[in-house]
Design a protein around this nucleic acid. Sequence first.
DNA 1: CGTAGACGACAGTATAACTATCCAAGGAGG
DNA 2: CCTCCTTGGATAGTTATACTGTCGTCTACG
Lengths: 212, 212
Amino acid sequence: MRISELSEQTGVPVPTIKYYLREGLLPEGDKRTPRLTDYDEQHVRRLGLLRILRDVGGVPVEGLKRLVAATETRGTVHDLFAVAADALAPTPPPSGPGREQARAVADAIIAQAGWDRVRGDSVDRDNLAATLELRAGFDTHPRGPAEIAPYVALADQLARHEIANLDDRKDRVGLLEEMIVGQVVFATVLTTLRRLAEEHHSHERFGEDRRD
Amino acid sequence: MRISELSEQTGVPVPTIKYYLREGLLPEGDKRTPRLTDYDEQHVRRLGLLRILRDVGGVPVEGLKRLVAATETRGTVHDLFAVAADALAPTPPPSGPGREQARAVADAIIAQAGWDRVRGDSVDRDNLAATLELRAGFDTHPRGPAEIAPYVALADQLARHEIANLDDRKDRVGLLEEMIVGQVVFATVLTTLRRLAEEHHSHERFGEDRRD
DNA sequence: CGTAGACGACAGTATAACTATCCAAGGAGG
DNA sequence: CCTCCTTGGATAGTTATACTGTCGTCTACG
């Protein structure tokens, strides 16, 4: 199929496809002649994946590049997932004054959860620390790790559920795609659902409350 | 306190403070004379709030403006929360071909959850629909509402927990702040924890799996 | 009384993610 | 064979967001 057809099928404009090609997000097509390149279903699918990650998940193009690079990872599927997790994680903000302590708290939370398969240099350890640090800076509350316990339990549930539901017939990259889409889409869904649920549940407590 | 002091205390550069002032995110200080304006603790706090929402939650300046405007809402605290939810929700992407059906599904999910206090025109109804629509376009799977049920249950739990934990001594805007920070910070925390948990739990199923 | 710092207006910058233009050439229809 | 449309490839331009910098003036404070 030609580039124009690829564009029609996916709804992605031709210049954008060219851009993705340049950035290496989309593999080159089959170059029949220097003037005619052939794209196939694989390209349609990849483009769909890229669009859903960007439009729904807000994953930046840089992250998409890391993800594409991650698919080259050798080793077990577990290794592949670990590299992808780093690719998907935002780059941690520059560390402030309380980072070291926050990092210790983050590590403690992970240990407490029993997540002993998480690499010591996982990007998300720093991300967790950074968030904790900023939060601590805002609110002078005590706010110990106890506050986070329910979220840890929830995340654990969620992860078990999603890992268990992956389709075993797929190949390694297929599994990765399913995992990523699930992660990104359901993170968005969950955030939206949570806002909806708070709107509903705030009625019981605050439906009559006109405090000033 | 002078603007330079406000800057030092919060770590936000003076030009940025001026920018926030121009945009109306920060209330004007007390103008003692045309050349001397006095800022106080309230400004320090507000600046901290703005920074945490932007740096941790990635809330765009536009959203912050809507949030500031929301604090003017009359009515019950529940009404206030509802307006804030709309302010915090991303603007739904332009609707595609399957939006109407997706919106019906979204409404059904909300009804099924028993969230009957959610306004009919809540922005998040459209957001949920938009996400569902994009997801459906990617994967040709059946993927009925059953798939979403566990997330609904989780969001319900989460919302109950957070509403119940709000500090009753605060005034309406104080409650709003606490709710917003909780929502934004814990959305980020949960996303990070989930990636960590998936890294851990993928080991059990895929730790030896080198499939090709 | 001299000057550092504040105000306010406005212009400039950085980054991300596209989008547009151009050109030469190949290929499909007639 | 001729014509015209489309492609590939390179490069330049655009839009949006979120700041950041400069300038002229003026005044509170030492």
